[in-house]
Amino acid sequence: MKILLIMDPGIPVPPPLYGGHERLVHMFSEEYARLGHEVSLLAGPNSHISGKIYSFGKNDLKRGNWQKIKELIYTWFFLLKKAKDFGLIHNFGRLAYLLPILNNDTNKIMTYGRTIDSKNIKLIDRFKNKNLFFTAPSFDCISTNNQYGSWARVFNAIDFSKYTLQTKVDKVAPLIFLSRLDKVKGCHIAIEIAKRTNNKLVIAGNISEIYHEIEYFKKEIEPHIDGIQIKYVGAVNDIEKNHLLGQSKAMLFPINIKEAFGMVMAESMACGTPVIAFNKGSVPEVVIDGVNGYRCDTVEQMIEAVNKIDKINRIDVRKDSESRFSSKVIAGEYLNLFSSTRVQEY
């Protein structure tokens, strides 16, 4: 089958540094190709995959509205001309890209990775459309707007070849907090838990450029960093991430918002490192209590979870994550959406 993936310009595919959706697009393009499909990609300049590239737009996250309008018009003309050439069009970009082909016979998937704008879905649902599936990485995310259209939960995926299972860690191994250092992510709570359980804590992630988040870092995180018990290593690349996750006894995920998926949880589990998380957003769907980590409602419960983390089998953590979050499994779920046996339909 001929498959077209679409991604907004702004960051190339794959991304040189940060870019969650761009990483997913590249991963699925390669996985679809490994499964024997002929894959093309419509994305920003300097993108590359094993298949054919159609470049458009401008790689600039701060590009203006006029530039985005030009990109939209380009995509419309491209799809009006080319849509019939593909058996599946998988869109990770703007929903508006699909407007000219909503009623086209081609199978179409619109994938969301964050909170969904119900106004856009409602508007699209008023148009004649067929062979269109909406997907999101958790039922919690879908619940923000599932009253219009056909929806399915399909988890996000990670590249397991980048993560090494560590079957054992030292008793004095640290805890780890891996995230952007915004207050809602809960780094200050991770610090509290590390101190109250007498554990070391490694903090990895970038500091926001927003003023109040900088103040949060200076007042609630930086004073605790001593380089001994509480260590801050900054933003990390994939190699560093694999090393830090693998040497940790558990990841702390004390998030105070509903996150659509939480890729770092899957990355931690790929190294065999269990996750201790607040029971919000996608956490009830990702963390299986007592199998790959613990779900908690309070700081006290997190402290209890840290003290019994050695009851979790790290080999089982990796096995479970690979069975649910590998690119091969998730690519298969996407391709099965239009078969007679739909997976995870909501």
Results as ranks from 00 to 15, higher is better:
residue 210 I to G: 01
residue 212 H to C: 07
residue 222 E to I: 00
residue 188 H to F: 02
residue 212 H to V: 09
residue 203 I to N: 06
residue 204 A to P: 05
residue 215 E to H: 14
residue 181 L to G: 12
residue 192 E to P: 00
residue 211 Y to L: 13
residue 190 A to I: 01
residue 221 I to L: 12
residue 191 I to V: 08
residue 206 N to Y: 09
residue 183 K to F: 07
residue 195 K to P: 04
residue 197 T to Q: 07
residue 221 I to T: 03
residue 190 A to T: 02
residue 193 I to F: 04
residue 193 I to Y: 03
residue 186 G to E: 04
residue 199 N to K: 14
residue 196 R to Q: 15
residue 186 G to F: 06
residue 210 I to C: 03
residue 217 F to V: 11
residue 220 E to D: 15
residue 199 N to S: 11
residue 218 K to N: 15
residue 180 R to V: 08
residue 223 P to I: 02
residue 212 H to T: 13
residue 213 E to K: 04
residue 192 E to L: 04
residue 211 Y to G: 00
residue 186 G to M: 04
residue 197 T to S: 08
residue 215 E to F: 06
residue 207 I to V: 14
residue 207 I to C: 08
residue 200 K to T: 12
residue 216 Y to K: 07
residue 183 K to G: 01
residue 218 K to Q: 14
residue 184 V to H: 13
residue 196 R to L: 10
residue 204 A to L: 08
residue 193 I to A: 04
residue 219 K to F: 07
residue 213 E to S: 09
residue 203 I to C: 02
residue 210 I to F: 08
residue 213 E to M: 09
residue 196 R to N: 14
residue 195 K to D: 03
residue 199 N to W: 00
residue 216 Y to F: 15
residue 206 N to S: 11
residue 220 E to V: 00
residue 224 H to K: 03
residue 216 Y to E: 14
residue 187 C to A: 14
residue 223 P to Y: 06
residue 211 Y to Q: 09
residue 220 E to I: 00
residue 224 H to C: 03
residue 197 T to D: 05
residue 208 S to M: 06
residue 216 Y to C: 14
residue 215 E to G: 07
residue 202 V to Y: 12
residue 180 R to I: 05
residue 207 I to P: 12
residue 179 S to Q: 11
residue 205 G to Q: 08
residue 188 H to N: 12
residue 214 I to Q: 14
residue 195 K to V: 01
residue 192 E to C: 00
residue 188 H to I: 00
residue 202 V to H: 01
residue 191 I to P: 04
residue 178 L to C: 13
residue 202 V to K: 05
residue 187 C to M: 02
residue 213 E to A: 06
residue 224 H to N: 13
residue 181 L to V: 10
residue 210 I to D: 14
residue 184 V to I: 08
residue 209 E to F: 05
residue 190 A to F: 08
residue 206 N to E: 13
residue 212 H to R: 12
residue 190 A to L: 05
residue 213 E to G: 03
residue 179 S to M: 06
residue 221 I to A: 04
residue 184 V to E: 13
residue 210 I to A: 10
residue 208 S to I: 05
residue 210 I to T: 11
residue 209 E to T: 12
residue 203 I to P: 03
residue 223 P to R: 05
residue 213 E to H: 11
residue 221 I to R: 03
residue 198 N to T: 02
residue 209 E to L: 07
residue 216 Y to W: 11
residue 224 H to P: 01
residue 215 E to Q: 14
residue 182 D to Q: 10
residue 184 V to D: 08
residue 220 E to T: 00
residue 181 L to C: 11
residue 188 H to Y: 07
residue 217 F to A: 11
residue 178 L to I: 15
residue 178 L to H: 11
residue 200 K to P: 03
residue 201 L to K: 07
